[in-house]
Design a protein around this nucleic acid. Structure first.
Length: 654
RNA sequence: GGCUCGAUGGUGAAACGGAAAUCAUCUCUGGCUUCUAACCAGAAGUUCCGGGUUCGAGUCCUGGUCGGGCUGCCA
């Protein structure tokens, strides 16, 4: 049940007919941050008093006097400047636990106004290797889809594959000119990947090579400027400082540019086979672009190659999804929308929403200085064109209330323009939301991205996480100390897999998505701290206690166990269990999965306190033992379900 | 230049405008050897700086500083 909404309803009844905007005040009720201030707190009396011109404490008292909530609450208390502190009755908590322990949906109600969501996430480029950057969109999108579904919403997940991009020109060119037939026969995925990387490296090499000298000069110039500045400082100290800073900055920029170029050159010049190819195939970028253009204009040979390559690349992508347990309802890639693009441009032009400017077809938007270009001067369409076609398609076929785009924050402006254009077209009722997220950084704080072709492929990354999990969780000494020496190697591998993959997902989801975050596998699999591993471990402990109880604990039996809340740790734990639904709702309100991870971590920690303070299997009485078993069982269910909604599995022993 | 996002103990993070800023981690001290010690207690802050709004500001507004991103034909 949603305790918060029940509580808000009590206040709504008191406030309506008394104040103008009761909703505004009802929103000021929240779970107490500190248990010393009750279970929930209403912080509305202060601001209400202000608008009424009365004393806050007096107003708080009056509200408390009018509240009728003896059903499940203790008498509210007014504290401090006018806080109303609310505490649930122990009887209510105790009698509600069986619903969590036995109820089909863990006492979570299906929401009343179910909405239809289209969630657009993951969207890898076919034929480009997947890497760490794809994890965030995939994991966040998947978690949102699962949570919204569990709450009773209709969710359509759509993987907007990049299957029509310029990478195909590169692969087609490479395939024609330097494929290894035997390799392609045996391992087509690997061979295509090799071809793609080779062409990409050569493109980088050929474009970087002529720029190196210039970049070196820029570094020298910047260095000289800085030296001059230090030799002849500006008499004005402040101006000098500013000028020096600017000079230092441009020097650093120049150095970074140069290093980037050198890395690209180095990547090829240090590999004799690539160097040879680079010399045999000058202007490979241009040639690749021609192949792409041919493909897009319907050239049959290239189209045949495309049809041959796409399923091969998809195999690799699908195996990653399988490992991560990710499923989509639809996978409409860019190629799916390609035939609709001329129509989109034509329609917008006819409606007067788009017009030609400098050879390109643009949609001008009042809020933006630059237009959204929907057709290039060479006639080619862009990402924005495809996105508009996609909105058309989704609105027509899915009739959604909301479309969520789980895409990194660099595309913020693109989506703002896209949404503005969509509204102009007439899609005004649908919620269009860019669920943006920050960059994944390496341990050094720099973007965890490809520098000179040294990409950490997704598969390797997952392997590494599983391995790290194995060494932490399956450490022989630990297993011996924990009574787990009987685990077979197969079981250990299963545990490491669940823990390793869970660790990556949890780490990603537990960070506020708008911030950048550092990707550190070692940290993620730690058994202490705010990690998925810790929560999985606490789950295993609930199961371990149940297994040792000698009682066949299951949903049906637990429903009849009497619940006692003698210890503070028991009460706090049960309260937390009943707040699961509140946490889920808050989590999807603005699409922040870290709200749910924080809840689960809190629950796990609360269970750890309970574990220390409340003996279960040698409790003072049989009734107390049953009560505590019911609590353990409910905690296990909520942890399992909560992690499950994040796409993370559990194991009974670890 | 314009737009935009960020800055919180040494490190990494959390906090619908609410009370005394919450956790983890490192280091140090002290505890158990009890259903898995993966635990418990103690030691760290001018929430980047200045103004403002508010009964109340890490949170909102404004001006700086620093950093990331975007900025007409990439996605």
């Amino acid at each position: 049940m949603q305790i918060l909404s029940v509580l808000q309803e009590h206040f709504r009844q008191v406030l309506s007919g008394w104040v103008e905007d009761p909703e505004k005040y009802v929103q000021m009720i929240a779970p107490a941050r500190d248990s010393r201030n009750g279970d929930y707190q209403a912080n509305l009396a202060m601001s209400l008093a202000k608008s009424l011109g009365r004393k806050p404490q007096e107003v708080a008292q009056e509200i408390v006097g009018k509240l009728d909530m003896a059903d499940m609450w203790l008498q509210p208390e007014v504290a401090g400047p006018g806080f109303i502190n609310l505490r649930l009755q122990d009887d209510f908590l105790a009698s509600s636990l069986p619903q969590v322990a036995s109820g089909e949906n863990l006492s979570v109600d299906k929401c009343e106004n179910s909405k239809t969501f289209v969630i657009d996430y993951s969207s890898p480029n076919v034929a480009k290797p997947m890497h760490v950057g794809h994890i965030r969109t995939t994991v966040i999108g998947d978690a949102l889809a699962r949570i919204l579904r569990f709450l009773g919403h209709q969710v359509i997940s759509d993987n907007h594959l990049g299957d029509w991009g310029t990478q195909f020109g590169m692969i087609i060119y490479g395939y024609r000119n330097f494929r290894d037939d035997a390799a392609f026969e045996q391992q087509p995925v690997a061979e295509l990947s090799r071809i793609y990387r080779a062409v990409q490296a050569i493109v980088g090499y050929q474009s970087a090579l002529p720029k190196v000298t210039e970049a070196e000069q820029k570094v020298a110039t910047a260095q000289k400027q800085l030296d001059d500045l230090e030799a002849n400082p500006d008499p004005d100290a402040k101006a000098q400082k500013k000028a020096r800073k600017a000079a230092l900055r441009s020097l650093n920029n120049a150095k970074e540019d140069l290093e980037g170029l050198q890395a690209k050159v180095e990547a090829v010049s240090s590999a004799p086979d690539l160097l040879e190819l680079a010399e045999q195939h000058p202007a490979i970028e241009k040639k690749s672009q021609l192949e792409t253009a041919k493909l897009h204009s319907g050239d049959e040979e290239n189209l045949d190659l495309w049809k041959k390559f796409v399923p091969i690349s998809l195999q690799e992508i699908d195996s990653a999804y399988e490992r991560l347990d990710i499923k989509f309802d639809h996978t409409f890639g860019e190629s799916f929308y390609h035939p609709m693009l001329p129509g989109v441009v034509q329609k917008l032009t006819e409606q007067g929403l788009a017009r030609e400017d400098n050879g390109a077809i643009c949609v001008f938007l009042d809020e933006f200085a630059t237009p959204m270009i929907i057709q290039k001067s060479d006639g080619a369409f862009l990402y924005s064109t495809t996105d508009l076609a996609t909105i058309d398609y989704r609105m027509e076929h899915f009739k959604p209330d909301a479309i969520l785009y789980v895409v990194d924050h660099r595309q913020g402006e693109h989506f703002e323009k896209l949404f503005a254009a969509a509204r102009k077209i007439g899609y005004e009722d649908v919620e269009l939301n860019h669920v943006s997220f920050g960059t994944v950084l390496g341990k050094d704080g720099k973007p965890f991205k490809t520098r000179s072709g040294t990409v950490m492929g997704l598969d390797l990354l997952l392997d590494e996480a599983v391995q790290a999990a194995y060494s932490v969780v399956c450490d022989p000494e630990r297993l011996a100390n924990s009574g787990l020496q009987d685990l077979t190697e197969e079981e250990k591998l299963h545990i490491a897999n669940t823990v390793g993959l869970g660790a990556i997902k949890y780490s990603d989801l537990s960070h506020n998505r708008v911030n950048d975050y550092k990707f550190d596998i070692g940290e993620m699999v730690q058994l202490t701290g705010d990690t998925g591993t810790y929560i999985q471990y606490m789950y295993a402990r609930t199961q371990s206690i149940i297994a040792k109880s000698g009682v066949d604990v299951n949903c049906k039996i637990v429903a009849d166990f009497p619940v006692q809340l003698a210890e503070p740790a028991e009460r706090a734990l049960v309260l937390q269990l009943l707040q699961f639904e509140d946490a889920l709702n808050q989590s999807v309100e603005s699409y922040y999965p870290n709200v749910l991870t924080a809840y689960l971590y809190g629950l796990a920690k609360q269970f750890a306190s309970f574990f220390i303070e409340c003996r279960v299997n040698d409790a003072a009485s049989e009734e107390l033992k049953q009560s505590r078993l019911a609590i353990c069982f409910a905690v296990g269910r909520v942890l399992e379900k909560g992690l499950g909604l994040l796409g993370i599995g559990v194991v009974p022993r670890m």
